[in-house]
Write a protein that binds this DNA or RNA. Structure first.
Length: 328
DNA sequence: TGCCAGGCCTGTC
DNA sequence: GACAGGCATGGC
């Protein structure tokens, strides 16, 4: 099934490659593709038109509580896509809440206009950031790909057959040391929390998680057993939701905030930007920076900081692209 | 070869 | 409360 959506104030490439999601792959023909939930999505933007291509029953065994029971009409799929991409909110209105006299932020917004914060599945987002601790983004993508390839559901044969020529990567086995390729193959779903909870520490370590393996396993088990309910977070106040996430091993303030839809993450790159832009020649602690960010950027602090993060990453000396080149 | 990476946790002072 | 060091692993 395919469709088209008229879009404005939106940049697909920037949104998918700005470091908030780790599984989207830019194919050689310009399409972005990923398994989202248990659906295989492809998207391509041409000016103000977003083309999409969607396959139902893409997984050999869709998760029982997942999208298999969802509506599959063109309108319903398009609506899900718009929700995921936050196309249903006015970017201009969000930007308008940013501090008016903050020129560095305004400059970042101008430069990366169209960046939108995705509405990702909470578990995938949380697990990805648990895996992110002291890892480069390219390596995070590799770890997430390894986890998905090993523990996720593969695309069903008929789903794979529906892929355009050149995309049916029939050979699942790639050299284990060639993680750039592994990271570029999004043909598995992200593993469910239950699957990870029942994995062994050795299996997780084999995905190159290192010391993060025990944190991911313990966090998955706490969530799977109901000790922490990710789906209850949206109904909580910010402080309560933060406190809930901090119960999880390997989850500190930064990762918790990333999981809370980027509500206020201050990581090393944002910290670097904040120090350079707002506190030059002054000594401030990370805690002070976090408090500054929470109070300064307004209700959409996460959006503001994602602009600053991406801008810092793309303009800092020694800059490197955030993603591996999917073209191999 | 050595440094460092979208941190977290623990021990020490 | 502040701070340092350890934790695994791989890209550069």
């Amino acid at each position: 099934m395919t469709g088209r959506i008229n879009v404005s104030d939106f940049d697909l490439a920037t949104t998918l490659e700005c470091g908030q999601a780790f599984r989207w792959r830019r194919a050689a023909d310009g399409w972005f593709e990923c398994v989202v939930g248990s659906e295989f999505w492809r998207m391509r933007q041409s000016g103000g038109v977003l083309e999409w291509d969607w396959s139902r029953e893409t997984l050999s065994r869709p998760a029982p509580n997942d999208e298999s029971s969802r509506e599959s009409g063109t309108h319903a799929v398009g609506a899900r896509l718009q929700h995921y991409l936050s196309l249903d909110v006015s970017l201009a209105r969000i930007i308008a809440t940013f501090p008016a006299d903050d020129e560095p932020l305004r400059a970042a917004v101008r430069k990366h206009w169209g960046l939108r914060v995705l509405r990702q599945e909470p578990w995938e987002c949380l697990a990805s950031f648990i895996a992110s601790s002291t890892k480069q983004i390219v390596q995070i993508r590799q770890i997430i790909a390894e986890l998905s390839n090993r523990f996720g559901e593969p695309l069903a044969d008929h789903g794979r057959a529906a892929l355009p020529r050149g995309h049916a990567d029939a050979e699942h086995r790639v050299p284990t040391n060639d993680l750039g390729r592994a990271a570029a193959r999004p043909y598995h779903s992200f593993p469910t929390v239950g699957v990870i909870a029942r994995a062994s520490i050795e299996e997780l370590r084999s995905c190159r998680l290192g010391f993060r393996a025990k944190n991911l396993l313990a966090a998955a088990r706490m969530i799977d057993s109901g000790k922490v309910d990710l789906h209850a977070l949206p109904s909580m106040e910010y402080e309560q939701a933060l406190e809930e996430l901090l119960k999880l091993p390997g989850v500190g303030e930064k990762i918790a905030n990333c999981a809370l839809l980027f509500s206020c993450p201050v990581d090393v790159w944002i910290e670097r930007a904040l120090r350079r832009l707002y506190f030059p020649r002054r000594t401030v602690t990370t805690r002070q920076l976090r408090e500054f960010a929470r109070s300064h950027f307004g209700p959409y602090a996460g959006w503001a900081q994602q602009y600053l993060f991406f801008n810092e990453r793309t303009t800092a000396r020694g800059q490197r692209p955030l993603t591996t080149n999917a073209r191999e």
